[in-house]
Each structure stands twice: as C-alpha cells, then as structure tokens.
C-alpha cells in the first residue's frame, strides 16, 4: 500500500513544518513581548530615576550635558531645603493622619454597605445601588463648595439647631472633613470601594453564612467572624487604593485645609509660588528643587506599595474586582 505510506510521510513532514512554524511564531512573539515590556518599563521607571538623580545632584552638574542620570557630585542640599520649604514632616504627618483615618473609616463602612448590597434583598435595593453609582459619577468639584460651607458651619445635619444657643462647629482644617463622609460611605471615591466589596462578596459562596445562621450566629457576628477573614484580598486592594487616593487628593484638600500646614498635594501645587516667594527668582527655575519636591511627596505611597506589592498583585488575581 504505497499510497498510504506516501501520505503518512507527507503528513509527518507537514507536522514537522507546523512545529517549526509554531516555534518561529513563538520566538517572534517572545521578542515582541519583551520589546514592548522593556519600552514600557523604561517609560514608567525613567521619570522616577531621573527625578531621583536630579534631586541628589549638586546644582553645578544639573546643566552639564555630560551627566546622564549618574551625578558627578552628590548633594542632599536640594532635598533638605525642600523638606524645610514644604514643611515636609508636618505636612506628611497631616496627610498620613487623613489617609490612615479615612481609609479605616472607609474599610468599615464600605465593606458593610457592599456586604448589604451583595447578600440581602430589600425594597429599593436597586435604586440605592443606582445612587451609589451616582456618587461615583458626579464630580466632587460640583459639591465641594457646599461641602466646604457645611463643614465650616457644621451643625451635625441640623441636630445642633435644636439645641438652644449652640453655635455651629468649624470642622475645616481638621481630619473630620475626610473621616466623617468616609464613615458614612460617601467619602473620597467611596462608591468605588462599595463596588469592589460588593463584587467580591458576590463571588463568595453562601453556604458558610447559611450554616452559621442555622447554628444561630447573628448577622453582625457572621460578618465579623466569617466574612471579613475571607475578604482579606478585597480589604488589601481597598486599603491601598484608598490610601493612595487620599494621599494624592488635591481638590478637597485644597478647599478643606487653609492653614499654615496643608496636606501634601496642595502644598506641592503651590511649589512655584513658594519657591518664588522664599528663594527668589533664580531658585524658581532650579531643576534640583523641582525634582526633589515631587520625589518627597511620592516616597510614602511608594514605600507602602513596595511593602504591600506582593499582596496587592495577588489580591487582584483573587479578589476578582469585576466578578
């Protein structure tokens, strides 16, 4: 049966050809992938390296064209001057207290609300969830003026006016401006956090809670003892997002904090004016200052990221943010 034999060899050679072709395609894809990865990594890492190198340069080597990234003379002068000018430690402490306290508040409130939306049926649930989406979509700038006025003359939602002779409290320049809304799941991007938690809880099996309920465990105890331990990835994701968004917030911080020490981003926003006022026009153009200032402001979130990075990437894989 020669014809069959013939077709057999033909098929084998075809298969070999296919293997070779697949390998070639694989190699091309490998090369392309790494070209893209390296190009993009360059795009993401270079500005940071550049900022770092410029800020530790001696001012004399900034305009030296032969200096590329590695300064000939190191100097921490620019950084220490910026620490002073930006009132860095005070400002960082303030921003840190805002970010930590409102993140804690948001974790408690948004996880509860997300749990409520994902596990229970009640009248008006869909309407309420549409309202959550509405808080995401309406820009904070729209309500910021009235929020500022309400905080400046804070009367606890009208309760204070029932007490005769009581004066409204000024909450501006305190962390309450951020913590109070977060505590009621309507703080900075709280809607997004509610969404993340809801999606995560939707993906958890219901069996555990049902078993707990049959055993007579109350809803709050079930939530604290069974649900929260299971939801660690979602909690890590929200913690990192919330910390970073609070740290990087410009609008609300600008409006709520008008004192001497202000949060990081409003301070950085006024960098040009600060430089001009305190160090004269020559300093205004100094590139070492303009590299050192933003570097200082991104160090805390960067450190947080480096420590939580592993959990963060894992938690994204497991949290199934989008269900």
């Amino acid at each position: 049966m020669p014809s069959i034999f013939n077709s057999e060899t033909k098929r084998r050679s075809l298969r070999n050809k296919k293997v070779i072709r697949d390998r070639a395609i694989g190699a091309v894809i490998w090369v392309l992938r790494w070209v893209f990865i390296l190009a993009l990594s360059y795009l993401f890492v270079y500005p940071l390296l550049f900022m770092l190198s410029t800020s530790i340069m001696d001012p004399s080597s900034v305009n030296d064209p032969s200096v590329i990234l590695i300064p000939k003379k190191f100097s921490l002068q620019s950084i220490s001057e910026m620490v002073e000018l930006l009132k860095y430690w005070d400002s960082a402490l303030l921003t840190l207290s805002i970010a930590v306290s409102s993140t804690l508040a948001a974790l408690v409130s948004c996880s509860m609300v997300g749990y409520g939306f994902s596990r229970f049926d009640f009248k008006g649930k869909n309407l309420l969830f549409i309202l959550v989406v509405l808080t995401i979509i309406v820009p904070p700038q729209t309500i910021l003026p009235s929020m500022t006025l309400n905080f400046q003359f804070f009367d606890f939602g009208g309760i204070l006016s029932l007490v005769p002779g009581a004066q409204p409290v000024n909450l501006l320049n305190t962390v309450w401006t951020f913590v109070l809304p977060s505590l009621f799941a309507t703080g900075l991007r709280s809607g997004v956090f509610i969404f993340i938690f809801r999606q995560f809880f939707l993906g958890l099996p219901k069996d555990l809670e049902e078993a707990a309920r049959i055993d007579g465990c109350g809803a709050i105890r079930t939530y604290v003892q069974i649900i929260i331990p299971l939801a660690v990835p979602a909690f890590i994701t929200v913690t990192l997002f919330s910390f970073i968004w609070h740290w990087n917030d410009l609008y609300s911080s600008t409006m709520y904090f008008t004192g001497d020490v202000r949060p990081m981003m409003p301070t950085l926003n006024d960098l040009d004016a600060l430089l001009q006022r305190n160090m004269g026009t020559s300093a205004y153009a100094a590139r070492t200052y303009k590299a050192a200032a933003p570097l200082l402001t991104i160090i805390p979130p960067l450190v947080l990221y480096i420590f939580t990075q592993k959990y963060f990437t894992e938690s994204i894989e497991r949290s199934g943010i989008v269900g």
């Binding site: 939306f117 309202l131 109070l180 009621f184």
Partner: peptide, 18 residues
Amino acid sequence: WTGFGFVTPFVIGFLFFF
C-alpha cells in the same frame, strides 16, 4: 431588615454628604 441595616451608613451619608 438586616440587609437594610448594613447599607444604612450609605443612606445617611448620601443624604447629608451628597
């Protein structure tokens, strides 16, 4: 009612802070 209890913080926040 339990479910509504869990979302109550948002309802209050929505009224006063939104």
